[in-house]
Design a protein around this nucleic acid. Structure first.
Lengths: 203, 203
DNA sequence: TAAATTTTACAGCGATCGCTACGTAATCCG
DNA sequence: CGGATTACGTAGCGATCGCTGTAAAATTTA
């Protein structure tokens, strides 16, 4: 045990430095965050970083583990604390909506997006791809709005909400495919997703 | 017009080279694919690449545009060709399931995943994050299986399908948050997603 | 065949990457 | 106080990044 610490004491707050590293990795991804970026945000020099955290890979692992115990812990809590399974899943989704858009930290989930890297000089690439995705959501919305006006959708069907929902499903299917889901599994996802389609009031 | 071409003719197939570049960007992302990777796969030298495509950024844009007209075209077709809106969205999701898992090309959608970069030396980071996500899906599945056995889920509720579905929704919500969706929009997504929850036969 | 034009491969540019050797500063133990 | 120990900043390592200068090779035009 190292109860007594000899030598020159550390001159920075390890937890605060870890929080800064979390913010950077969350925002810019693993490769998109350089050692220079980290040392600048943490207010320390490279040797101090390596002495305190090992190397970049080890620091990242520590960041992800810490994330799971803090920002990402709402998922397990929601599923664990609710006695009813359905209530648990519903609460998890609701809290995800809040957490993923909390302006106090980067958007989305670190575990999902930390491989999405963009450094300063390639930020426009990510911006271009994002614009294409946003345009796609708008295309969904316009088609749904036209359908509602044409009477093929029940009134009050919320084209915007449906568009974001279907875009999220498509993007989730893409991610699941990257993570190894089979065609059969994704086809079941497609079927399940269609249960959200609005039904007329009197049906 | 350059009907007649003077000088030394190009010694490689531009379309084939573009297809190789598409494969690399699709699999490894923009930053994860280096000029050296590209020239190796395309079978050409750097000056030939720059003469034929401009620079890396322009090549990537051409790749994404080409993708939209080929692999990614099924979406617009499904929504356009079906007279009924609901049938169009259902077909789009079904075809996404097939396309995203087609073993003839990288998994998922290029526009969604091309910012997910991982080079050779950081592939283990992406692998680690993927394992965490896969473990999460399994956790969902186990909870749903236990609920089914305990009778809190109707029989034949397909825990695996539901787990993949809810994981996809969560990941889609994360991506939508990154793309600028609001908390209110994501909360509506959460509500809509819950309509997939299985109901007892006699209800 | 000679001049003009374009593509080719080789080699290397400056910048940035993750990482570290080195000497100094600051603390604890005796 | 002196010696041991640990953290610090500076400065720079080798490797890789996107990209290009240069000259030879290959083709069309005159």
């Amino acid at each position: 045990m190292t109860v007594t610490k000899r030598g020159r004491p550390r001159s920075f707050d390890r937890e605060a430095a870890l929080a800064q590293a979390t913010r950077l990795f969350w925002e810019y991804g693993y490769e998109g965050t350089s050692i220079a970026d980290l040392t600048r945000a943490m207010g320390i020099s490279p040797p101090s970083l390596y002495a305190a955290f090992g190397d970049k890979r080890a620091l990242f692992t520590e960041v992800v583990d810490r994330y799971g115990g803090t920002f990402g812990a709402f998922m397990g809590r929601a599923l664990e604390e609710e006695s009813d399974v359905r209530t648990g899943f519903a609460r998890m989704l609701r809290e995800a909506a809040v957490s993923y858009t909390d302006p106090l930290h980067p958007a989305g989930c670190l575990v999902i997006t930390a491989a999405t890297n963009y450094s300063a000089q390639t930020a426009d690439v990510e911006r271009d791809l994002r614009q294409r995705r946003v345009a796609n959501v708008r295309d969904f919305e316009e088609r749904l709005t036209r359908a509602e006006k044409a009477g093929s959708l029940p009134p009050g069907a919320e084209p915007r909400a449906l568009a974001v929902y279907f875009a999220a499903v498509v993007q989730g299917m893409s991610q699941q495919a990257r993570d190894g889901a089979s065609a059969a599994e994704l086809e079941r996802v497609a079927e399940l997703a269609m249960t959200a389609w609005p039904v007329p009031k009197g049906a």
